[in-house]
Design a protein around this nucleic acid. Structure first.
Lengths: 234, 234
DNA sequence: TAGTGGTCTAGACCACCCG
DNA sequence: GGGTGGTCTAGACCACTAT
């Protein structure tokens, strides 16, 4: 049979199923009809029905188990998805003018807390780079980053005067693993001075740890200007 | 041809392609071979190759366009994914004992800032519920929530003494839209007292706005105990 | 206009797991 | 044991868009 107007695409099926969940037709904990039953109802094939249900499960609405069937989740396990763009892109995306300023960059032995954090034994050298990102002339983000020399040897000769260390890294290192944390910290002297904020001001802070194939590449602490909100719609 | 040992599953293909991206075999901006070329290389069918590439694109590694082909993204648009569980589930997941305490609940007219936030015109009543969630006897999260009566009429008779308002809501309302924000705030008198923290302490705070089919349902502000980190691996 | 990805049909085998 | 979802093959038509 060729594709008819009344046949349902996987998007149609997703929409119909979601509507039935949200309207309560299929209440939490209810078991949906099997794929083959839905194939009959929607007049499509298992491939299509399967894709619709699989995606709804990925989105946290359904739980699927062989033999047990497809169940409507009581509390949809919603996942917040945050895009993690380059700071420059994030700023330009709001229509603001981006400016970058290097505060300092030097090669150092890594402090103990950082070696512990990166799970590195023995001494290791790293570039310690500090920089400010401005939006429309106002401080937007203070970046305090370490780049492990063993993983990125060219870092010893890198020049960060014009390009942020993150953009520099992205040109060279395809990342494989990232651990990302968000927290609220207190503005210390450095941050307060750079952000033009009172000492002790609550600062939205992100920590980012990056590995390439098991090797630690970089650790960054990103301090956002007071009032920053990270927002997403799900 | 039946499935042979040397045939590749879509997972195999994903892994191989990802390895080629991360090793630089397929550098940023490079165009991958077309699906049919990969079908020849991997000895599978387009359905399988397509699923592998489609998922890698969803994960932010590739960009796909008809006719233009599949391109390796320079800066992988990585997405942090945070599971948003019930507070009780989050606490119990760490192995800690969960305890809930209601602080106050009453029906009120919504304040102006909230009506603006929910895009509601005219007066509207809502339940204002405040509650504390404990982990192993220590304050973990202070929840300050408004529930719109027009969207959930039963809320006027609800009893939140034993069950948190979030769990209560989930039993009744399948959500459709959520806006989630994270920020750093300063502990005010209420939060400081409840969290046993100094006034002005930086507090990791989440705001959550929920709609059902365009109707605002609830607005919650969740204040986490000092030191809270939200972490994810991507 | 030609080549690429997007999606569908039709059918099949299999892994898992509940009863 | 048997029903369910997981995934694959083989082939097809179509939509988009770079050239």
């Amino acid at each position: 049979m060729s594709r008819q107007k009344d046949n349902k695409s996987f998007r149609d099926i997703k929409a119909i199923v979601l509507e039935r969940i949200q309207s309560g037709t299929w209440a939490p904990d209810a078991i949906l009809p099997s794929e083959s039953a839905l194939v009959t109802e929607f007049g499509s094939t298992r491939t299509t029905v399967n894709r619709a249900l699989r995606e709804l499960a990925e989105e946290g609405y359904l739980e699927r188990k062989r033999k047990a069937g497809t169940r409507v989740l009581r509390a949809p396990v919603r996942h917040a998805r945050f895009a993690i763009p380059l700071t420059r892109v994030e700023i330009e995306g709001t229509g603001a003018r981006y400016r970058y300023a290097l505060i300092g960059a030097e090669m150092r032995d890594m402090p103990d807390w950082l070696r512990a954090r990166l799970d590195l034994r023995g001494a290791a050298r790293a570039a310690h780079v500090r920089a400010l990102h401005y939006a429309d002339g106002k401080p937007f983000q203070y970046e305090d980053r370490w780049i492990v020399e063993a993983s990125v040897p060219e870092v010893a000769e890198a020049d960060f005067s014009d390009t942020g260390p993150n953009e520099w890294l992205i040109e060279r290192i395809p990342v494989s693993n990232v651990e990302l944390s968000f927290m609220a910290t207190r503005a210390d002297q450095t941050v307060a001075a750079l952000m033009d904020a009172p000492l002790g001001e609550p600062i939205f802070t992100a920590e980012r740890l990056t590995w390439l194939r098991g090797q630690p590449v970089t650790f960054a602490r990103l301090h956002f200007a007071p009032g920053y909100r990270m927002t997403t719609r799900i």
